[in-house]
Simulated scan of single mutants.
Amino acid sequence: MSKTAVVYWSQSGNTEAMANALADAMGTEAVEVSSFSADSVADYDALAFGCPAMGDEELDPDFEEVWNDCLPALGERPVGLFGSYDWGTGEWMETWKSAAEDAGVNVVGTVIANLEPDDEALGELRALGERLLA
């Protein structure tokens, strides 16, 4: 079994709920982004990062700082991206995924939820967890 990390930032609790569901599916714990750093990446075989859409469909600046620090350390590890949004279309996730792939990240999947994760999003999180553990 792979050693995995689920790293997230949440403002309203919706992305935290997603992080906890994904962590439960993978048999690991969710870690708030302020407790994670690029130095931690080497300890894991696969990682998932979660951040809600902020402002004009963008990542939270504090989360993005840690994410950008982690980018060079991710290598070929499988990475999942997830988060919630309140308005808009979820464009921030497509932008985030494209930028990650352009940086060489092995993105194996993304999951978004409009506000609180519903049954469909929870199922997608379980499927993402399976891909990360494979």
Rank of each mutant, 00 (worst) to 15 (best):
K3T: 15
K3Q: 15
T4M: 12
T4Q: 10
T4K: 11
V6S: 10
V6A: 10
Y8E: 08
Y8G: 04
W9Q: 08
W9H: 09
W9R: 11
S10W: 13
Q11D: 06
Q11F: 00
S12H: 07
N14V: 02
T15M: 05
E16V: 01
E16D: 03
A17Q: 14
M18I: 07
M18W: 02
A19N: 06
A19G: 03
N20W: 05
N20T: 08
A21T: 14
L22N: 08
L22C: 05
D24Q: 13
A25T: 01
A25C: 07
M26S: 02
T28W: 04
T28V: 09
T28Y: 04
E29L: 02
E29Y: 03
E29K: 14
E29Q: 15
E29N: 14
V33E: 08
V33N: 07
S35G: 11
S37D: 10
S37G: 13
A38I: 01
S40Y: 01
V41H: 03
A42H: 03
D43L: 07
A46T: 01
A46R: 01
A46L: 01
A46E: 00
A46K: 00
L47K: 03
A48P: 03
A48V: 05
F49S: 04
G50W: 09
C51D: 10
C51E: 11
M54T: 14
G55Y: 14
E57G: 12
E57I: 05
P61W: 07
D62I: 09
D62P: 02
E64G: 00
V66P: 07
W67Y: 15
N68V: 06
N68G: 12
D69G: 04
D69F: 03
A73M: 10
A73L: 04
A73T: 10
L74A: 03
V79K: 06
V79R: 09
V79L: 10
G80H: 11
G80S: 13
L81P: 11
L81C: 09
F82Q: 04
F82E: 02
G83C: 10
S84W: 15
S84H: 12
D86G: 15
W87Y: 14
W87M: 14
G88V: 12
G88P: 13
E91C: 03
W92D: 06
W92C: 07
M93E: 09
M93Y: 13
E94D: 15
T95S: 11
S98N: 11
A99W: 09
A100W: 07
A100H: 06
D102C: 12
G104N: 14
G104C: 10
V108G: 04
V108W: 12
V108L: 05
G109Y: 14
V111R: 05
V111Q: 06
A113E: 07
L115Q: 10
E116W: 09
P117L: 05
D119A: 15
D119E: 15
G123S: 11
L125M: 06
L125N: 06
L125E: 07
R126W: 00
R126Y: 00
L128P: 09
G129I: 11
E130Y: 00
R131P: 01
L132V: 01
L133H: 02
